[in-house]
Design a protein around this nucleic acid. Structure first.
Lengths: 167, 167
DNA sequence: TTCGATACTCACGGATTTCGTAGGTGGCCC
DNA sequence: GGGCCACCTACGAAATCCGTGAGTATCGAA
């Protein structure tokens, strides 16, 4: 169960940390699915040099391990969420605790701990200005440990890709 | 062929701007695919109250229109990109021109125009520190119109979802 | 009101894909 | 060597995909 990071064909790169590493073949599979999440296993197999079943098993494992997920993504504006913002947050005390609290909020779509003049950056997706105001002022600022926040309201989303590796 | 944003069952919301609007059914379809991008059309149809063929046609249209894409997403750290950063940028002159230039850079995964103390925010995905440094100092700062930048290096990604609507 | 366009349902059949499973192979450790 | 484990290939059955055509309902414009 411990996911020992096997090394099938010898053609993989060394793995440092605790996260399960990926060999070149899995990378290639992910690339294929980044282009089209519904691409058939057989087509992927042809592209990466594996049988259909092998691809299927690898994909299943990647999904199970949480390394990858196959999902629909949209521009939130198109889907009726008219206000988005990035919020920079400064924390006193336990940053991770604040991050966990933010993670539990459904409006927070993206939570990351950073180095720099903010401790946390959070992307907020809201339906309108009232909603956004409430989330930032009532909920985020109310969290214990939050010292200050700074908001960057989105005017226009110019780019949004998921194509790492395809370059 | 012109795809005029029809209004099938009368149960849709009005559409203001240029972007094609989405009725409740398409929203529901997107939700299904946000949970599992490979869910079969028949299963989606059962969930949203449409036939398999209708779902198929809607999904195809949503993809063609660019409203939605079905892709694999990963935590970049797992895939070998060890340094990520959010970069806030101040611009003098044409903000959109700078944004377009950033959009063309493969390391910029996310580009958004904002209101607040930054004009642009950009998410950068790099392989290591050298790469990150080069992108920020050599390439971004070199763009005409870029007045200043501020970087927030990612320490830990806590949350990353694509579940708008599923709430 | 009538016409035209759009979108849906239902149906069908062939091609393709998915899925479970059985069997083979190579590396690794005792 | 022998056992073990992870990974692969192979194959058949079941399910899904996909193009297609006919008939119906709704809406907006002439």
């Amino acid at each position: 169960m411990a996911s020992r990071s096997a090394d099938p064909k010898g053609s993989s790169q060394r793995n440092g940390g605790g996260t399960p590493s990926l060999d070149a073949v899995s990378l290639a599979i992910i690339e294929q699915l980044q282009e089209d999440g519904r691409r058939p296993y057989a087509a992927i197999g042809k592209a990466v040099g594996l049988s259909e079943a092998a691809v299927r098993q690898r994909v299943q494992k990647l999904l199970d391990q949480g390394v990858m997920q196959i999902v629909a993504v949209t521009d939130p504006l198109t889907v009726g969420f008219r206000r988005q913002a990035m919020v920079g947050i400064n924390v006193e005390g336990d940053v991770e605790a604040v991050a966990d609290a933010l993670t539990d909020m459904s409006e927070c779509e993206y939570v990351v701990m950073t180095a720099g003049s903010f401790d946390l950056m959070v992307e907020i997706v809201c339906e309108d200005d009232d909603h956004l105001l409430e989330v930032i002022n009532q909920r985020i600022r109310a969290l214990p440990g939050v010292r200050s926040t700074e908001s960057f309201v989105y005017l226009k989303l110019k780019k949004q890709t998921y194509m790492w590796g395809t370059r």
